[in-house]
């Protein structure tokens, strides 16, 4: 059964449907959260929150407005970013060290896990962006930096970063294919 249909059952309180949904989404949710949060224990915590929130608020999911999977992953990303930012803020308060720019770590992560088809495809498409587009998108999405922080790290004007993010995402869409 597809995630969209399962969500409807889950919204009706069906725990077995949730178990199935868990099978479908836990990998992407956990992987994304871990990529952003990094710390394994915290990643588990956030992933658990997200999955539980999926159960609690399944009734709000409206299939006519997008797929269940984007719904869940958007939620997961938001929660992961919130977590990593509050952790960073705590660290920053203690030591305001000037962090120097380093290249986004998508290389190391790609090697960390086995190659799935989608991963290969995304990797390939990320490679086709300009360096600034790629860094703007990945520093924000995978590393959880705000666009102001990204501008800071890349020493670029804010407007340029916003444009690079948009161009990067649009180009990624063209490369990946709209309906993937």
């Amino acid at each position: 059964m597809e995630a969209d249909e399962l969500m409807v059952l889950v919204a009706g309180g069906d725990q077995r449907a949730f178990e199935q949904l868990y099978g479908l989404v836990s990998g992407p949710v956990f992987g994304l959260v871990r990529r952003v949060v990094r710390d394994p224990a915290q990643s588990e915590e956030v992933a658990q929150e997200v999955l539980l929130e999926t159960w609690r608020s399944a009734g709000r999911f409206d299939p006519s407005r997008g797929s269940a999977l984007s719904w869940i992953l958007t939620l997961a990303h938001r929660r992961a970013v919130d977590r990593v930012r509050s952790a960073r803020a705590a660290v920053d308060r203690e030591q305001r060290e000037a962090s120097r720019y380093h290249d986004p770590a998508f290389d190391q992560v790609a090697e960390e896990v086995e190659a799935g088809l989608e991963r290969q495809l995304v990797r390939r498409c990320l490679d086709r962006l300009t360096a600034l587009q790629r860094q703007s998108v990945t520093l924000a999405y995978y590393d959880g930096y705000t666009y102001r922080e990204v501008a800071d790290r890349l020493s670029l004007p804010l407007g340029t970063v916003k444009t690079r993010m948009r161009d990067g995402l649009t180009r990624l869409r063209d490369c990946l294919g709209g309906a993937a």
């Binding site: 836990s26 992407p28 588990e44 990946l176 993937a180």
Partner: peptide, 26 residues
Amino acid sequence: ALAEDAVRLAWSQAAEPPAHLRSRVL
């Protein structure tokens, strides 16, 4: 539209969660 693109970036990161996460969540 842009958020759908961003979600593609999420997919590519899928990773097997630890087994105990499942029992905890359920």
